[in-house]
Amino acid sequence: MAVGILGEKLGMITWFDAEGKALAATVLYAEPSVVTQIKSIETDGYNAIQLGYGKVKEKNVTKPLKGHFNKAGVAPKRVLREFRVESPHEFKVGQELGVTLFHEGELVHISGISKGKGFAGVMKRHDFLGGPDSHGMSKWHRRPGSIGSIRATGRTFKGWRMPGHMGHERVTVRNLKVLKVYPEKNVLVVQGAVPGPRHGIVEIRKATE
């Protein structure tokens, strides 16, 4: 439950801190997000603000969404996301939230859609060890091993880790340190990696306990 903004990932660079240590850093771009709706316990059953981010062509916006943006008196936005907040009435529809919400040294949580890996085997997906590459192994290099026993259980347990689709899911990275804020450039630099490809949309939230 913390306020945040929407942004996009630009890529990663090497960042030198005051001590001269080289840190891996992610550069995020975030034009001001606009508050498009305020949700409160009385009307919606929970407290949140809805933010819009990014430009979109008028012709690509569906009529129902156009109505939604008109009601807020805001130009149509590419993405809408909700952020749970304690007191939604502190915010106004049409209000802009930008990178200045954060300051250097602060910790943030960042959520995004991770890069899709397709149908992945068990070694990539679950860090299984696979089999030896040599010593007479035949067709037993990246296999998952036994998935159960006939005698004791007679079935394979639900949730057993197996090959399958990997990536392209919502991932949250917690407690990333903000290294630098460029208010005039709408840019935020955080220490560490952030889920998703370059130009992927991310949610940047203030860190909670």
Binding site: E8, L10, G11, I13, T14, W15, F16, V27, Y29, Y182, K185, V187, V189, H199
Partner: peptide
């Protein structure tokens, strides 16, 4: 413009 921003920030460090 957005594509160059990361280069700009890199230039600043250089």
């Amino acid at each position: 413009m957005k594509g160059n921003l990361i280069r700009e920030i890199e230039q600043e460090l250089m």
